[in-house]
Amino acid sequence: MDRLTSWIARAVFLFLYLPIAALIVYSFNSSEVSYRFDGFTFRWYAELFADRMLLEALRTSAVVGVIAALVATVIGFLTAFALVRFRVKGRAFFVGAILIPLIVPEIVLGVSLLTVFSTAGIPTGLLTLVLGHVVITLPLATLVLMGAMSSLDPSLTEAATDLGASPWVTFRRVLFPLLRPSILAAFLLSFTTSFSNIVISTFTAGVGTTTLPLRIYSTLRTGLTPELNALGTLLVVATLGVILAVGVSQMRRILAGPTTTP
């Protein structure tokens, strides 16, 4: 049975990369229409690097994504820690309130955020974009970290405290190492959520802060261009390259001999 589920999991990874493979193939398609393959071309890559607006949108998305994900992960960590580790009053209220952004249809949240920002006199721009994205990524980060913390054996931190470690030392030496993969998970999930958000961005972006999905979504009426396949390909290949580089060196180290870490 374990073997079967392993195979299913591998099939799911394949499933995840199926459209990416299509994307890569079609980024070299010389045809302007997606349903036919006419031949090989680099034309879309050339057009991509000449597309000033698209690249600027990519930069905006990357900046907003990193900031929003960092903020969400930090706040999410504090919140999860407080909710899991302390007997705080109004815990149910907190959990419920953090979930609201997930429950409200995004367009509703977007429209009302715009109203709130304009009433408060905050001009739309990078700040409002980040705030809007923090709202929708905070529940994700918090839930992931709450899940990780609540199934963590509490005796570990208690032992550290009993041994006289300060809360900061306990966090740095015990909690953080144990939770590191989950923190990474929370950050990555927040980043991609922010990076791909359309609706909240529609209402919180301002002059010069059109994000990549906004830019792409607004081209729907005139049709998506194959240069977007080229952009997708580059993003995936660049990331995979980095991982491979890091992953391979790591594996070599493991093969080379005993490491100090488990």
């Binding site: 690249l55 990519l58 930069r59 998305s61 990357a62 900046v63 994504g65 990193v66 190492p177 590191r180 993969p181 990474l184 950050f187 990555l188 980043f191 990076f195 580059l234 993003l235 660049a238 990331t239 390259g241 980095v242 991982i243 890091v246 992953g247 060196s249 790591q250 180290r253 490491t259 870490t261 488990p262």
Partner: peptide, 20 residues
């Protein structure tokens, strides 16, 4: 856990930022 592992996530994002 290797420290490089954490760097992985950062590098992933860095690649996106570099491209941008």
């Amino acid at each position: 856990m290797n420290k490089k592992v954490l760097a992985l996530g950062a590098l992933t994002l860095a690649s996106a930022t570099v491209l941008a």
